[in-house]
Design a protein around this nucleic acid. Structure first.
Lengths: 145, 145
DNA sequence: GGCTTATCTACAATGAGTGTTGAAAAACAA
DNA sequence: TTGTTTTTCAACACTCATTGTAGATAAGCC
C-alpha cells in the first residue's frame, strides 16, 4: 500500500474526493499486518475521529480495494479481512484458535495441476491458506511444565 | 461420506436419533459433487419432504461435520459449502464467475514453508483454492466465433 | 404400549454487510 | 474568497446467512 500522501494523490487523480475520514483510514491501515476486519479498522479509526461511521470505513476499504491498494480476503473467520500488503506475492497463515492472520511471504512455483485434474477450469490463480496455531496460542494451549 | 445405511448406524452408535428428515438429507448428499450450501441441500430435500425446515438441515449438516462425514468450507462465495468427499485428500476449484466449486484431487508435497517464513506458527494443514473459470462460464463469456 | 430424551418446526434474533437520503464538505472556477 | 457542482458523510433501515428458543413431536428402549 502507498503512503497516506500518495493515496491522497491517487484518490484525487481518480476523481475521488479526499476527506479527513479517508485520510484517517489511510493512516490506520499504514503498516498494519493484522489483516483487520472492517469492524477492526473502524475501532482504530474511532480513536482518532469519534464520529466516523462504519459505513464510511466499508466504503473507503472498497475504494482502496478497487484501486488495488489493499486486497480483501475471506479466510473463513466470519468476516472479510483487508491486507495492505499488495506488493509481495504471498499466502496466509491463519490461527485455528484465535483467528489471527499473517502473511506468509513465499512463492510455490511447483503448484502445477496434474493433467486432467482441473476438470476443464481455466485456472488463473491459487491461494493457499495454512492453518495452525500462532505462537501465542501455542503457549496458551500447551503450557510448558 | 458413508452410505445412508451406514450413516444411520453411525448416528445411533453416537447416541443421535435417526429421523426421516435426517435420512432424507443423507440421501441428498450421497454422490453430490456440487459442494452445496445449506440452502441448496434444503431445496433438494424439500423435493422429497415438503415440510423439512432449513434449521433441521443446518443441524444435520453440523452433526455430519462433527462426525467427520462431510467437511464444511468457506471459499468466499458468501455461504458455507459442504463437501461429502472426505476420503480423497484434495483441494478446490472455484469459478470466479458463477461460484461453482469442484474438487481438485491432487496432493502437492512440495508445499514446504521456507525456514523462518512461518512466523512461529505451528502449521497443521494447507488448503489451496484455485480460482478461474469453469467450462460453462468459459463458453458463455468467450463465445467461439 | 409407555417412558425418556432427542429432534422437529416455527419464529425471533444475531451479525456482517449494503441501500437510501438529506446534510455537509471537497474540488474547482471565477 | 465566494459560489457552484459533485462527492461523501452519518444515520437509519434493510438484507441475508446462520443461530437461539420453546413447545410439540417422534425415536429408541424397556
Amino acid at each position: 500500500m502507498k503512503t497516506p500522501e500518495e493515496l491522497t494523490e491517487l484518490f484525487r487523480a481518480n476523481g475521488r474526493k479526499v476527506t479527513a475520514q479517508r485520510q484517517c483510514i489511510f493512516r490506520v491501515l499504514q503498516g498494519d499486518v493484522s489483516h483487520p476486519s472492517a469492524e477492526a479498522v473502524h475501532s482504530a479509526a474511532v480513536r482518532e475521529m469519534e464520529t466516523i461511521s462504519l459505513k464510511t470505513v466499508y466504503q473507503t476499504l472498497h475504494d482502496l480495494s478497487e484501486l488495488g491498494e489493499i486486497s480483501s480476503l475471506d479466510v473463513g473467520t466470519g468476516m472479510i479481512r483487508f491486507d495492505p500488503n499488495v506488493d509481495d506475492p504471498h499466502h496466509h497463515l491463519v490461527c485455528r484458535h484465535c483467528g489471527k492472520v499473517r502473511d506468509l511471504v513465499a512463492s510455490f512455483p511447483d503448484l502445477k495441476i496434474p493433467r486432467g485434474a482441473d476438470l476443464g477450469f481455466d485456472v488463473g490463480s491459487a491461494e493457499i491458506v495454512f492453518r495452525g496455531l500462532c505462537p501465542e496460542c501455542q503457549s496458551t494451549l500447551q503450557p510448558s511444565p
